[in-house]
Amino acid sequence: MTGAILFHELTARQRIAALVDAGSFSELLPPPERITSPYLAQLGIPVSFDDGLVIGHARIGGKKIYLAAQVGQFVGGAVGEIHGAKLTGLFKAAARDKVPCVLIVESGGVRLHEGSSGEIAIAETMRAIFECRALKVPTIAVIATDIGAYGGIGILSTCCDFRVMTEHGRLGISGPIVIEKWMGKKAYDSANRALVWKTSGGKTKYLLGDADALVHDTADAVRDGISKFLGKSNAVSLAALKARQKDLAKRLKRFGAATDPDTVWKGMGVRNIEAASLASGPDFAALAKRGK
């Protein structure tokens, strides 16, 4: 299962099986419980037994974790009431039991069919994540698929202590098509995959410090990436927030007028753009001097 098969090609359940110690995963609210979306059913849209989110506890290297994996193929991994409640409950359980929580992200954000419930669920989950962080319980988001982390889930991912990304992963608030609709095709062409990935993909996010690790697209590499952060936490303090705000202001001043993402790559220390474009995971990181 691991190694040869690319992580982004696996299903949510396969991702969990490939990441955790063999046989250690125990699912909470599994499919036979049939906790499905009441809203989709009313709208005549098919429901899913897990509402697009697999949650449970498992072990990685013998260490207990809570983890969740979103099912991107089911309504884009979008967050509805049930999906969101499972997410909130999992992070609350992590805070209660002081057990690290890992979220394998694959979601475009809130499910529009149940907008208000989804938005509230995102807010409640953010609160639960900050509860974990206040207790120094590690929270880790893994963003490793083309669907990536957008909208509310983009925000939620950045609320976690750490983000592990691959070059396939994308992180943002508004998706490319939304940006194009508002700003025009001239400003941002959502069909230009190179542009999209160079602005919101894992490599750029790593350069800018939004991702804490950039790993190869295999389950082994993702597991190693997660393991590094299981014993750490990234405390929320006023000083840290102020420093981050200063960083962002600096970034805006430096790159705000840039029209080509290569300007950002060069500015963050990438000398050979072509070689860096072809490099993956830590090879890319080695080619680029980590941004200051």
Binding site: T11, R13, P30, P31, P32, P46, V71, Q73, F74
Partner: peptide
């Protein structure tokens, strides 16, 4: 195992729960 799941609810696809 007592139950098994195959497939996913996506366009042109289905999920089968067998218990």
């Amino acid at each position: 195992k007592p139950w098994a799941l195959a497939g996913v609810v996506g366009s042109g696809n289905l999920e089968v729960l067998m218990e």
